[in-house]
Design a protein around this nucleic acid. Sequence first.
DNA 1: CTGCTTGCTGAAGCACACTCATTTAGAATG
DNA 2: CATTCTAAATGAGTGTGCTTCAGCAAGCAG
Lengths: 227, 227
Amino acid sequence: MSRTQTRREKLAEKEEAILQAATKAFLLGGLKAARMAEIAKAAQVAEGTLYLYYRNKEALFEAVVARHWDDLRRGAQKVVRAETDPVLQLETLASYTLDRIMGDRKLFELTLYLAHAGEGLTAATDRLGYVRVFDGVIERGRSEGVFTASANPKLLRDLFFGTLDYAARSALARGEDAASSRIIETLMTAMLAVLQPRAEDRDPGVEERLERAVARLEAVAERYPAG
Amino acid sequence: MSRTQTRREKLAEKEEAILQAATKAFLLGGLKAARMAEIAKAAQVAEGTLYLYYRNKEALFEAVVARHWDDLRRGAQKVVRAETDPVLQLETLASYTLDRIMGDRKLFELTLYLAHAGEGLTAATDRLGYVRVFDGVIERGRSEGVFTASANPKLLRDLFFGTLDYAARSALARGEDAASSRIIETLMTAMLAVLQPRAEDRDPGVEERLERAVARLEAVAERYPAG
DNA sequence: CTGCTTGCTGAAGCACACTCATTTAGAATG
DNA sequence: CATTCTAAATGAGTGTGCTTCAGCAAGCAG
């Protein structure tokens, strides 16, 4: 029994070694540049052994990326839970996501491979479960009446992640790290414009107040006989 | 003289044949799946000849993608020029871009390769010159005072293209073509929120209207002697 | 000890991108 | 027209690197 445990543990350890070696290799030069022979050597296994754990190079690659996103997702859930106001949650999530993209940019860029190889970027991150954190925040904001229910949730995702993704990449390309707060600010303005469409809806209503004011004054005028 | 022409023309023709064959091959299965041997055969040249025109497979690939974006850029310029109002230009550009992404999605996805291979997606499309059309619209709107000058232009780009890109991809993944107008609408709401920050700035002004209404009624009251 | 299962090995196989010695075709020269 | 000269094209050959597979090791059961 303890033997079986030990055995399984050994397998798990080996898989872990492989994953770590692979992560390192892929980070260094991407999918193409990484060599299976190198990975095997670094993980202290024979080249053929890799194929006992992963169908092929791409499968190994996907495993590496998936693991990373799983970490990210957990982190996102944590920071989001620390807030209660949906708007703040959204902002926190945006900050966190942006920071992580810029911090682990290499691994993030690797995700692009998945995008073309398979079904597209959204579908990829979707499968990786990260967007669910976002969906949760939106859902909550809706049930609390802070966000309107009219906007298409899928579209909100695209607005959010598309902007963050592109912004992170172009900031990195220019080497500007300090731009983060600016990015978040702009994104939030955009998001809230979509999530809380008409100012009048969440306000007693400017038009209505104007109407009432005029009506009141007209009433005043009524009290006097025409001069 | 006409001889020299003929010779050059022959080269140009050959290059064109290669490019077309390559486009077809890359569209079919992406960079990796395409075979140089296939391309050579389709273009009716020897395999070695390909390398006289392009350094390697990737260079050929880049040439294919660049050409496509050049077409797109020209088309974008055309539709934008057909409008005069910057807001409408923006909307037109968004529609056009979305349509093209969804129409030529394969080729669009190929652009992702450039993104990782080189410097990132924004930098890639940047180099491809497409974003310049966008920049032009923003620039114009600013000089006309329709858009505020406060927003960071790079950020606007990322908001615009990031959202369109992600939205197009996720719409395609779900097979919803009819969603276009919805996407544009949402994007425009978001963009305008950033480009025209305070509602009072672009509107005769709610406060002002209130002021006028009250003034009018005060004028009415003046006509009567105090009761 | 003898089979049986599970996991591992690394040399061989194979698919391709790319090179380069050789050939071809067309222009320039006399 | 014959003769060089040169730019362009060829395709068999080379190297690289993923993947496979026949065989080996180590634990376990009877």
